[in-house]
Amino acid sequence: MEPNVGKTDRMIRIAVGLLLLSLIFIGPQSWWGLVGLVPLATAFINFCPAYKLLGVDTLGK
């Protein structure tokens, strides 16, 4: 797995992931907040499978 997630993209993914994850505790208190684990995981491993399929690379080598 070659990294394909850049710094700015990574920060956005972390923010969105935490926001979605907070839905478990505040707001509608829905289990749909667990969807926030996906952007968090892709941010921490620096690899997005969807980007690989689409040929996108925000790393900027």
Rank of each mutant, 00 (worst) to 15 (best):
M1E: 12
M1A: 11
M1Y: 06
E2S: 06
E2G: 14
E2T: 09
E2P: 01
E2D: 07
P3D: 03
P3Y: 04
P3E: 10
P3I: 11
V5C: 13
V5F: 09
G6R: 13
G6F: 07
G6H: 09
G6T: 07
K7M: 13
K7H: 07
T8D: 08
T8E: 03
T8F: 03
D9T: 04
D9V: 02
D9F: 04
R10I: 05
R10T: 04
M11S: 06
I12G: 04
I12R: 06
I12N: 08
R13W: 11
I14E: 08
I14W: 15
A15R: 10
A15F: 15
A15I: 09
V16M: 01
V16G: 01
V16E: 00
G17N: 04
G17I: 00
L19Y: 12
L19R: 07
L19D: 06
L20G: 03
L20D: 05
L21G: 02
L21I: 00
L21H: 02
L21N: 00
S22H: 05
S22I: 07
S22G: 14
L23T: 00
I24M: 03
F25G: 05
I26S: 03
I26P: 00
G27T: 01
G27R: 11
P28S: 14
P28C: 03
Q29K: 13
Q29V: 07
S30K: 03
S30T: 15
W31E: 02
W32D: 13
W32P: 02
W32Q: 12
G33S: 08
G33T: 00
G33V: 00
L34C: 07
L34N: 11
L34Q: 08
V35M: 14
V35G: 05
V35C: 12
V35L: 05
G36S: 08
G36P: 00
L37G: 12
L37Y: 06
V38M: 08
V38T: 12
P39T: 05
L40H: 01
L40Y: 03
L40D: 02
L40V: 11
A41Q: 09
A41P: 01
A41S: 15
T42A: 09
T42L: 12
T42K: 05
A43C: 10
F44G: 09
F44E: 05
I45R: 12
I45V: 15
I45E: 05
I45S: 13
I45P: 02
N46M: 13
C48E: 10
P49M: 14
P49K: 11
P49Q: 11
P49L: 15
P49N: 06
A50T: 13
A50N: 06
A50G: 10
Y51Q: 04
Y51G: 08
Y51F: 15
K52Q: 07
L53A: 14
L53I: 13
L53P: 05
L53E: 03
L54R: 09
L54I: 06
L54W: 08
G55N: 09
V56H: 00
D57A: 03
D57Y: 01
D57M: 00
T58D: 05
T58I: 12
L59T: 15
L59I: 15
L59G: 09
G60W: 09
G60E: 11
G60R: 11
K61I: 00
